[in-house]
Design a protein around this nucleic acid. Structure first.
Lengths: 218, 218
DNA sequence: ACCGCATTTCAACAAGCGTTGAAAAATATT
DNA sequence: AATATTTTTCAACGCTTGTTGAAATGCGGT
């Protein structure tokens, strides 16, 4: 190997930052906490990433490409397997959600933290507009287009509002607040992603059909 | 009046704190920012509320009782106007959501900031468990019970997951991130609460029916 | 006019913050 | 083995943070 190996401490900083930012948000975490949990000097984060905000962006971007391509592949796959009529609403929603479930269940807790961080950013009036569009707009547009095909005659406005509802439901699941565990008295568990998505997919698909017209009932 | 009037600056601190906390979160706001925007000395916040965390709680609790009773009144009203069969899923969801729309449209921007703050807390893995239950669990339980009656034969687990989806969709709307505005190219506006709820109510009701069994189609 | 109390400001504190330049250690190149 | 480069630590900086005690101000009751 002619090139220098990736520094392992660099990755540890990213992992710890990911976890802490997801839990406490950008301002709720100090570089010293991150360094301490990573077993590293404070100055090392600055050396590798520059300013604190650059570290935040690095965490945000590290897994974004992988996530986007996994979801896009799932969309293409369901489009390929569907006939000329195209995939159903359920199949599209499934392609949108299942890759997340898979990522959360790789055993790597980093993915879980990462998706919780996305939830934090997506719901923040401050961070949302600054960070979400850049990385996820084109992916979302692809799914919206597929939904438009699956819901002929639907008004664009209605589709966007329905997507908004989907995005909110998904986000609360990703945030892992444990709220449903307490409310349900243990009958539901936040960490049970399969149950979450198994319920979310038919829920959302029915909502789309109701709001965007039922001409595509299959 | 024998009692001293409420200090007006105290309310201004609450108003400003509400707005800033909603935008930047607990750790993203300093007492000095709040004091400056309120046109007040830093020490005054401590005098009125104690620690920073106490101020946060004061903001959180100020409007909670009013909000809870408005929603509970709406639930009782729809139950009273319904026959012996009880209100439909739509009517229950409507009672859950419309009071928020009304609050947001009083012209008092405080309510809008307050609800955005609730959204922030509800989606935070750190603040959610610490703050939501105390103030909102009993209200939510009342609505869950009403939904159970409207969906005979539904499994409790399914009802909670559906409520979870509702809560997430609502929360993203309250957060006012403006994301739907950009995505839709201006066709939808975050600030158009009536449009948001007009779309959310049938969307969510259809989801409940789909997931919790369709025995109650009306 | 004076008093008692609530309100507000002033001034300062100790602690923690992000950031940086230079030294040290580890690793790669020759 | 010596050198060059990358990685990591050390030590410190200037600044901001939440909090506090004492002083100043405002104000209703007598």
């Amino acid at each position: 190997m002619t090139k220098s190996r990736q520094a392992p401490k660099r990755e540890r900083i990213l992992d710890v930052a990911e976890e802490l930012f997801a839990l406490r948000g950008y301002d709720g975490v100090t570089l010293r906490q991150i360094a301490k949990d990573a077993g590293v000097d404070v100055a090392l984060a600055s050396y590798h990433f520059g300013k604190k905000l650059d570290l935040f962006n690095a965490v945000f971007e590290r897994r974004a490409a992988h996530l986007n391509s996994a979801r896009l592949d799932a969309l293409k796959a369901c489009q390929a397997s569907a006939g000329a009529a195209g995939p159903s609403v359920e199949q599209i929603i499934e392609a949108f959600l299942r890759p997340l479930e898979l990522a959360q269940e790789t055993g790597d807790p980093g993915w879980q933290n990462y998706l919780a961080l996305i939830a934090y950013i997506n719901n923040s009036p401050y961070w949302g507009p600054r960070m979400m569009s850049k990385l996820f707009d084109s992916l979302v547009s692809a799914f919206i287009a597929a939904l438009r095909d699956a819901l002929p005659g639907a008004r664009d406005e209605d589709i966007y509002w329905c997507y908004h509802n989907l995005s909110g439901a998904l986000t609360l699941t990703l945030a892992q607040t444990g709220r449903i565990d307490k409310l349900s008295g243990g009958k539901c568990r936040s960490a049970d992603f399969q149950a979450a998505y198994d319920h979310m997919i038919p829920f959302v698909a029915a909502g789309f059909r109701e709001v965007c017209g039922r001409s595509t009932a299959r």
